[in-house]
């Protein structure tokens, strides 16, 4: 019973960190598609004196990836209803050219301002409308959610790491006699702390398996039957086989860091 309790005290905080890592991976993957949607749905309006090619826009700023010309005839046909053909032609010839300009990624609002400035430096460009306020509110909300999640995961990771190190200190205390005797007879650090490494590595495997099981359950049982659109649409992104390797790698890294932290705090043989 004591043995199980000892190991659970190590496995549970380690699982908390791994759940945080996996949450981050899942969030990153699902928000990737959302980000893509936001990027594709966004374009700025550019008004030019003369027609402009995409390459000319790209030359002004590297983030510009598409440009779509708005047909002036459609605009004129709306505003020149009931006018003579010659008047329509006159309006058409005096109208500037309009373009919807798309970007290559979801950018910070300051980057949008930079693009606007770059475009406005061209004498052919009369006006740039970034629709910055609506873009900015979506961007800020999105960034805030991401930041909050990272902060939360970071906080959980720090608290869990302290718990892991505490548990490791208990193990070191339990095995101190053996470690002291081994030190007296000249055992190197890696050999005398081998018992800690073994226990921690075994627990790292357990924590990885348990975390994977939790996410596999979420993916194949909960998400599939949840009725929540975003979950059902992103079911594939909820857990991937490569995540097991990432989780195991993270778990091993954490246990190695914590074992070394505890072992190096050893001041030597105490009698």
């Amino acid at each position: 019973m004591k043995f199980i309790k000892n190991h659970l005290m190590f496995i549970l905080p380690l699982m908390a960190i791994l759940l945080g890592v996996e949450f981050y991976l899942v969030f990153d993957r699902t928000t990737d598609s959302y980000e893509k949607g936001l990027k594709e749905g966004y374009s700025m309006l550019v008004v030019t004196k003369k027609p402009m090619e995409l390459s000319a826009f790209k030359a002004l700023n590297k983030h510009i990836s598409t440009s779509q010309k708005i047909q002036r005839e459609n605009i004129v046909s709306e505003i020149a209803k009931g006018m003579s053909q010659s008047s329509s032609k006159e309006i058409l010839s005096s109208l500037p050219y309009f373009y919807n300009v798309g970007l290559d990624s979801y950018l910070h609002t300051s980057a949008l301002e930079k693009i606007k400035t770059d475009l406005e430096m061209d004498s052919n460009i009369k006006k740039v409308e970034t629709f910055g306020s609506s873009y900015s509110s979506s961007y800020r909300l999105f960034s805030f959610i991401k930041f909050t999640l990272k902060l939360f995961i970071g906080f959980i990771a720090v608290v869990s790491l302290f718990l892991i190190i505490k548990q490791m200190e208990i193990w070191k205390y339990t095995h101190r006699e053996r470690m002291q005797v081994m030190e007296i007879f000249g055992a190197p650090l890696i050999l005398r702390s081998g018992v800690l490494f073994k226990a921690a590595i075994v627990d790292a495997f357990f924590a990885t398996i348990l975390t994977s099981v939790v996410f596999l359950y979420v993916k194949f049982q909960w998400a599939a039957n949840s009725g929540i659109d975003i979950m059902m649409q992103n079911q594939e992104a909820l857990f991937r086989l490569t995540d097991i390797a990432i989780l195991l790698g993270s778990a091993l890294l954490i246990v190695i860091i914590s074992v070394y932290t505890v072992v190096f705090s050893n001041k030597g043989v105490q009698e």
Partner: peptide
Amino acid sequence: LRTHMGIIFQDYKLVNEWTVAKNVVLPLMI
């Protein structure tokens, strides 16, 4: 240097969770 020394203590300093044989061969294990 310690691997070339044999050290004996009044309180024996044996590892109680190891067998007698394993205690004896500790220097060889190291």
